[in-house]
Design a protein around this nucleic acid. Sequence first.
DNA 1: CTGGGGAAGGGGCCC
DNA 2: AGGGCCCCTTCCCCA
Length: 264
Amino acid sequence: MPRCFLVRKSACSRRRRPNYSELHDSSPEFTFQQPYDPAHLLAAIPPPEVLNPTASLPTLIWDSLLAPQAQPVGWASLLPREIPEVVELTSLSDEDSGKGSQPPSPPSPVPCSSSTSASFLEAEGHAAFLGLGPLPKQLSGLSGAKGPQSHKAFNCKYCNTEYGSLGALKMHIRSHTLPWVCGTCGKAFSRSWLLQGHVRTHTGEKPFSCSHCNYAFADRSNLRAHLRTHSDVKKYQCKTCSRTFSRLSRLHKHQESGCSGGPP
DNA sequence: CTGGGGAAGGGGCCC
DNA sequence: AGGGCCCCTTCCCCA
């Protein structure tokens, strides 16, 4: 990362959510007017009223550099995916739980009304619906959930990866079930915003432009990487041979390939 | 071989 | 608690 561009507002605000309203006010022309072709979207795109039209436009420290030129994608006219009829969690097929060859039906639109009940069976059913493995023993028995054994482990039933929280596991499960599907090419994604970014590859939308050269990007991170190219300073140096690299991944590859230790 | 762009994945934080 | 969005990172391709 170009640290020169990664000036933090403060150490503790590193993960602070940007002030979208402020950005919106300062960029009144930056509105979501150019809609996506709904044909690109097959999966569960939240209804427009649910979406914050400025949600993808955070106020970064280099906001002036990220001022989008191209009209950002618009969700206003998106047709929300039809909410499937509520199904019995326990009657879901393997495909719906992510075992099928085709991407499963998006689980997120399904109202999790059962969560209002804390019954164990419902919790287990919901877990199965999400592709989760059997409830940990710590959770088998409601009182056990907060028992003395505070070290809970949630394992993915697909890859057995262990997570420390159910939420993290649920998030991980989606990387297996891939509930978000591109209506154009059928590619499936684990996150809605991944699909959003992917759709831009079809629409050609590039909302993020470089203030230095006006080069536009569809992805903010790619713009951030591009901004680094405007800096002459290479950020990543091999401690063995002092060679510098523009990307950390390349430094890693350099080291993994066996640094000779000689001068650059 | 290196640098840059495109695309995508994942963990963490905030609402 | 869950969803949305963030940043960070990696991989691939191309010039």
